[in-house]
């Protein structure tokens, strides 16, 4: 009872997937400068999964990859939080802020937004984004599978 929507919808969905994913990644990467962040960007990327499911009614089985991605993201998140602890501070101490290098720049007052600031915060955004993408995609995948609106592509 899975529904394959009309050719118009499918073509537009195929074209829209890449911009949606890129836009979500933009939200994740610029989370420390503009509204957005790991959760919001992850949700936007995950909705591209929803788009594919709804347009084609079929999708590749990438549950294992998604599950691995989720666990990896969370583990990395915890380890990033542990960076401060290992250096002798407490958990979640932002020990990379202002130390130079990528994401280590300094900033003050109103500014146009420099991408290389924030210390561990952009990195945490990225790993949380990975986790959220995988988690929400997995939820959508499982529920679509159960409700019979998804065929597994080979």
């Amino acid at each position: 009872m899975n529904v394959k929507m009309s050719v118009v919808v499918r073509t537009v969905a195929d074209i829209m997937v890449v911009p949606i994913v890129v836009f979500g990644i933009y939200l994740i990467l610029h989370g420390h400068l503009t509204p957005g962040g790991g959760f919001q960007g992850g949700a936007v990327v995950a909705s591209s999964t929803a788009l594919l499911i709804v347009a084609h009614g079929a999708m590749k089985d990438n549950k294992t990859d998604l599950s691995n991605m989720e666990s990896t993201g969370l583990t990395l998140f915890f380890l990033l939080a542990m960076v401060g602890l290992i250096m002798g501070f407490s958990l979640f101490y932002n020990s990379l802020a202002g130390t130079g290098g990528i994401f280590g720049g300094t900033v003050s007052g109103i500014n146009p937004g420099y991408i290389n600031t924030g210390g561990t915060i952009p990195l945490m955004n990225i790993v949380v984004g990975m986790e959220v993408i995988a988690a929400l995609s997995l939820i959508l995948w499982m529920m679509a599978k159960r409700s019979g609106s998804l065929e597994v592509e080979k």
Binding site: L27, P35, G36, G37, F39, Q40, A43, V44, A46, S47, A50, V54, L136, I139, L140, M143, A144, R146, S147, S149
Partner: peptide
């Protein structure tokens, strides 16, 4: 930030899950 989260989660994903 909250508006984007609500837009992404509330509008697209929650409706999708409910419809499933």
């Amino acid at each position: 930030d909250v508006a984007i989260a609500e837009a992404a989660v509330g509008a697209a994903l929650t409706t999708a899950i409910f419809i499933f």
